[in-house]
């Protein structure tokens, strides 16, 4: 039967992506221990001490998610005042899920990491890891 309407067809690779993401979560979730979270908190970039392989694996995963709904550190006053922000699609204003203020970029980036762990279901509760 010929194809007449492009809207009748969807991108089936979404099925694979969902399967893969689930398998990846299963593999990574056990790595997210309090020690790993502390490792990130102490040095988000790994500039002082290179990140261990577990943290690197987790970061590779949490870095790669769609930008619509993706958390970021908002430099409200660069070098002095930061908040947790959520980016949305081009043309849309970002949102701020809470009123927390961080006085260093390091703290803010760690908060982003915790939010990302929660959003991507690598932890059940980000606060428990914090």
């Amino acid at each position: 039967m010929p194809l007449r309407n492009p809207n009748d067809y969807r991108d089936k690779t979404a099925d694979w992506l969902a399967f893969f993401a689930n398998r990846r979560r299963q593999a990574l979730a056990p790595l997210v221990t309090p020690a790993l979270v502390r490792e990130h908190e102490e040095d988000p970039r790994g500039g002082d001490t290179p990140h261990g392989f577990a943290l690197q694996d987790v970061l590779n995963y949490v870095h790669n998610m769609p930008t619509d709904g993706k958390s970021f550190a908002y430099a409200e006053v660069p070098y002095r005042r930061y908040r947790l922000g959520i980016m949305h699609a081009r043309g849309h204003t970002p949102t701020f899920p809470d009123d927390r203020v961080f006085t260093s970029e390091r703290e803010a980036v760690h908060a982003v990491f915790l939010e990302r762990l929660c959003t991507l279901h690598l932890t059940t509760d980000a606060e428990d890891q914090g």
């Binding site: 870095h63 930008t67 908002y74 430099a75 980016m87």
Partner: peptide
Amino acid sequence: QVLQNAATGQCVMGVLTTLD
């Protein structure tokens, strides 16, 4: 405006993004 729009932008940078 790469980090605002590209899913893999943070993978390339190796850092969680800070925007102003």
